[in-house]
Write a protein that binds this DNA or RNA. Sequence first.
RNA 1: GUGAUUGUAGCUCAGUUGGUUAGAGCGCCUGGUUGUGGCCCAGGAGGUCGCGGGUUCGAGACCCGUCUUUCACCCCA
Length: 422
Amino acid sequence: MSSKSEPIPGISDLFPEETNQWQYLEGNARDMFSKYSIGEIRTPIFERTDVFLRSIGDETDIVQKEMYTFKDRGDRSLTLRPEGTAGVLRAIANKGLSQGDEHRVYYIGPMFRGERPAAGRKRQFHQIGVEYVGKVSPEIDSECIILLLDYLNSIDITDTKLLINTRGVSGDRQQVSAAMLDYYKPHIDHMCEDCQRRYHTNIWRILDCKNDDCKTITNNAPSMIDLISDTSKTYFDSVCDILNHTGVQYEIDPQLVRGLDYYVHTVFEVVSNDIGAQDSIAGGGRYEIQPPGQKHPLNGVGFAMGVERLLLARNANNATTLEGINVDIYIVSLGQPALLKNFDLASSLRKQGFRVLMDLEKRGMKAQMRTANKVNAKITLIRGQSELDKGIILLKNMDDSSQINVKIDELKAAVEAIINRL
RNA sequence: GUGAUUGUAGCUCAGUUGGUUAGAGCGCCUGGUUGUGGCCCAGGAGGUCGCGGGUUCGAGACCCGUCUUUCACCCCA
């Protein structure tokens, strides 16, 4: 409820009903990635601030207004990671990657951005991401996209659209920017405040402005594909060819530029209509990042998916519901001697692989039975003094209410007979 | 950061033009005769009405502030 025990805004606690679903998404991701021979990397939650400044770009919104930055006791500026790629690349550069070699890794974990929370947007949110680092080719970009779709498919997220575009190589930047500045110059006074600012700070971002007037102007802007160099164009064409060949449905969105400066060549995004205003559930592209202290930039391609948004999309798609934590056997104890014996019984049943819950409160029979029913136990085992005396145990099938006496050494077979039938 | 919106029992919510001991449903606990669940019945526990000020004889209701929720903008996953 509303009080001091609430977490600060935009972050939330997850209880078993939810972690259950998270584990399903994460487990599927691990399985899928292993099929592509991609292993997990775990990098720190926080890094020196310049790790992010350098790679994400200091004109980006993330760097300008969304990072959680603080000083440590050594007066170093540190930042809670706002995304995964910069840290992963820093780690790979630090470990060393010999020329012509490639690292393929995935990561799963929390990211932090100081934004106002809304549907599908948290201040601590979680991403599952993949990076192919070290080599450059349209084939690699394509496999990366195929992997992403393969995964989404495996978790029943199918009602989505893949958008792709290219930003050309970094060498194209100058001429593209020049052409755009040229084009917008006569219009800029009629555009929104944000675009007027972007005109000077980051002209590319004008392309995905949502303002209607700006959109109209942008619609007639020279297309990225016409501005980039021939080699960039050929590269992008190859990506499209491979996607066509493999039957991947996509849409080229000339306005898709994405908000991080490190992207080059292919950029892509998977969007969904039914998760609120934040429609992007995954995004990524090819990048060129030079971590602090490195002489040369590293090339890679990758994507990140927002776990919270995947969940929204899954629920909107009426994906298969998941089983919660179930109880196979509930043990009812009547009297202290029986309770003591039942501790042993519970542990031996657990060793046999059953999910066992027992009453530890010495309550009345009725109360214990009510709990057995509430937790949806398949079987209830009842043992009190008279069962102890006779060396038996009562086994009740909660499904049909039938009840039998069994000897301890026949218990396993009797329990299995019921559980296997259900 | 801007705009709107929310805050009453564990949960979902009522609470009339400000007026006595703040309610319901669900959930929880205990019973409904010896040691047996679900349905039903009875009883019970549980609330500084987000927090702080103010107006008033009197405030859960009105005013101000603050925090929080949700949503949109911005931007991104």
